[in-house]
Amino acid sequence: MVRASEIALNRELWALVNERFTGPAAAALWSRPEMGWGLYGVPERRLGVLGEVDGLDVLELACGTAYWSAWLTRAGARVVAVDLSMEQLTTARTLQRSTGPAFPLVQADAEHVPLASASFDLVLSEHGAAAWCDPEYWLPEVARVLRPGGLLVFLTNTVLSALCVPEDEGVATSSLQRGQRAAYHVRWPGGGAEFHPSHGDWIRLLRRFGFHIEALHELYAPQDAPDHPYYEIVSADWASQWPAEELWVARRTLEAVTHNG
């Protein structure tokens, strides 16, 4: 029941985020000519984590307004986009009509994906499942829907940034505000429940559920970058000194574990 209440809380939060922030911002991202990761749009061509996506079956988990799905569809992938928030998916449908392209949109929780096993070559999530869903549940779901040898790519906040955000929320400081164990599962006073495992936790969990880790990219803000217009996780100055986001790349092994035991 506790987890169900947190999922409902996150759904309410993202309805509010969609109402306040994602209109013009989502349209700008859908129209962007190239793929870029995270708050500061680090180009995918520079990181090269996805490889050739033309012809791949791709699932975007916790897609938000689904701009990644739009980029990947334009690159030739067959994409399905899943999100908990009907408001975010409504924004995505509006942008499909106004900007294109079209692809399937599914309302669902990333911890319980209503799609067939072994259906996808690539599962991607940017600031989605990794922060907002319990890794004990969403990682085995990814292992289930991926084909053997398929790729999981996810971007989330660094555990360091979570450690430096004050307990009453706000922008990350230059000093630790909580213990590392406390950051694993955080219930914010302003709404929302998040997960910020340590690197050791991520390695343990990914291996447990049948993934081989291929890369971990720590992302910084470019020098002299402006602050993000509405996501106040970190300032650009903070993110130019310490990594604010981390991009994990892991491959499903032939003997993936797909249960939660």
Rank of each mutant, 00 (worst) to 15 (best):
A28Q: 14
E218F: 12
R32N: 13
G210V: 08
L105C: 02
V171H: 06
L72M: 09
R207N: 13
E246D: 08
A8E: 14
D224Y: 05
R208S: 13
D237R: 10
A110D: 08
L176D: 03
F103A: 03
A250M: 09
D134N: 15
N10K: 05
T90F: 03
V113P: 10
G48V: 12
A102G: 01
A27K: 12
W71C: 09
R78H: 15
T65A: 09
L219V: 10
W37F: 13
Q107I: 07
R46W: 11
A70Y: 02
T22Y: 14
E136F: 04
A4G: 00
R207C: 14
E169H: 11
T22P: 00
L206C: 09
G170V: 10
A256Q: 11
D54F: 00
D109A: 04
V58S: 08
R97C: 01
A62L: 04
E87C: 00
R178P: 13
H259I: 11
T90A: 11
V49F: 10
H127D: 02
V165H: 06
R11E: 15
R20A: 14
P226Y: 08
V80A: 02
S175P: 00
N157R: 12
H196Y: 15
V58E: 03
R251D: 13
N260V: 14
L16F: 02
A256M: 02
G36A: 15
G51K: 04
S125I: 13
A75T: 07
L50G: 04
F195G: 01
D57S: 11
L59E: 04
G64C: 08
A66C: 14
E60M: 04
E126M: 05
G261R: 06
E245A: 02
V82K: 02
T158I: 10
G261L: 09
A182T: 11
F103W: 10
V106W: 05
E245P: 13
L72S: 01
F120E: 08
P140S: 06
A92L: 03
L146R: 06
I203V: 15
H212S: 14
C63D: 09
A110S: 15
V257T: 11
L29C: 07
H196Q: 11
S235T: 15
G23E: 12
A172W: 09
E214P: 03
A26P: 01
N157I: 00
F209D: 14
L176P: 03
S235E: 12
V234I: 07
G170Y: 14
V58A: 03
L50R: 07
Q241I: 03
G55L: 06
M1W: 05
L163Y: 08
A92S: 09
F21P: 00
A110I: 10
